[in-house]
Design a binder for these strands. Sequence first.
DNA 1: TTGCCGTGTGGGGAATTGTGGGAGAAAGTG
DNA 2: CACTTTCTCCCACAATTCCCCACACGGCAA
Lengths: 153, 153
Amino acid sequence: MGISVTTGEHDYTLDSKNRLVVPPSYREALLRENGPHFWITTALGDDPCLWFFLPSQWEKLLEDFNEQTRNVKDKTEVRKLRSQIFGKASPVETDEQGRILVPHNLKEFAKLKKDIKFVGMGNKAEIWDESKYRKFESSAHTAMTKLAKELDL
Amino acid sequence: MGISVTTGEHDYTLDSKNRLVVPPSYREALLRENGPHFWITTALGDDPCLWFFLPSQWEKLLEDFNEQTRNVKDKTEVRKLRSQIFGKASPVETDEQGRILVPHNLKEFAKLKKDIKFVGMGNKAEIWDESKYRKFESSAHTAMTKLAKELDL
DNA sequence: TTGCCGTGTGGGGAATTGTGGGAGAAAGTG
DNA sequence: CACTTTCTCCCACAATTCCCCACACGGCAA
C-alpha cells in the first residue's frame, strides 16, 4: 500500500474558524480507500502534536491496540487506555475546499496557533504548531547526531 | 457497525433541572438505529462516572455480560453485578433540545456538579464530572505513554 | 499570451446547537 | 383539603457550526 502518500512536510494555516487544509495526496488516498472520513487524535507519546489517520491506518492502530492489550489481566487499565484512544479521537470530514475542522480540545492539546506543519510519517501524519515543530526538529537532530556517532554508520 | 459515532470529548453543563445535552452525533445514531431511547447506568469498576449507551451498544453489553459470567462459579457475585448494572439502569429520552434528564441516584453516584465531560469510548460513552475527569485523565495519559513506547506507535 | 483548473485562504449567512427560564400538570405533604 | 415541590412541555436567545460563495495564485495546455 502506498506509503509514498503519507510523507513530506506541508505548511498550512489554521484560520479563525479552526479549519485546516488536508494535503491533496491524502484526499486522493481517502477516495481510493472509499473511506468516509479521516481520524484525528492526540499523539500517544510525549510529543505535543496531533495524529492524523486514513481509515486503513486507523484500523491498523486499533488492531495493534487490541492485540497488545488482549492478555492484560486488569481490565481497568485497558479501560483507561481505551479512553485515551477513543476519548480523544474524532472522525473528521473535509469541506468543499479540502479542509477539516480541528476540534477545540485537540487544538488546545497541541497548542496550535496559526502556522501549522503537516508531516507525513508513513503510518500516520503529524500535525504540529510550526514553532513547536522547529524546536522538536532541532532537538531530534542533536539526539540523532549523538546516536549516529555511537552507531559508526 | 459504526463505531465512529461514539468517540471524542464533549463539554456540557448540567443545569438546575438536571438536564444534560447528548452530542448531536449520538442523536443521529439513535435515529439511524430506529431506537426508542438511550440507556444510562452506573459505571463498573472504580470510576465515579456514568455509562451511556445506544440501543445496539446496550444489547451488546447484555450479551457480553451473559457470555462472560456463564462459567463464574459464585453466582451470588454475578447477581450483585447484574443488579449493579441493570438494576440502576434507566432508559432516557431526549427533549426537543436534545437533552436527557439525569436520574437523581445516578447524579449522586457520579457526584456530578455543573461542568460535565461526555466521553466517547467506542462501545459506550462515559459521563464525568469535569474536575474528576481531569484527574483520571492524567493518570490514564501516563499509562498510555508507557504503552505507546512498547507499541512503537 | 489567454483561458482553465486545482489549490489555499477568507467571509457571509442560514441552520443547528447549547443554555436558561416560564407556566401548567402532576405528585408529595401537612 | 390547601399548599408546596417537582416534572414536563414549551418558548427564547446567544453562540457556534455548517454550507456556500469569492478570490488570488500558480501550473499547464492551447
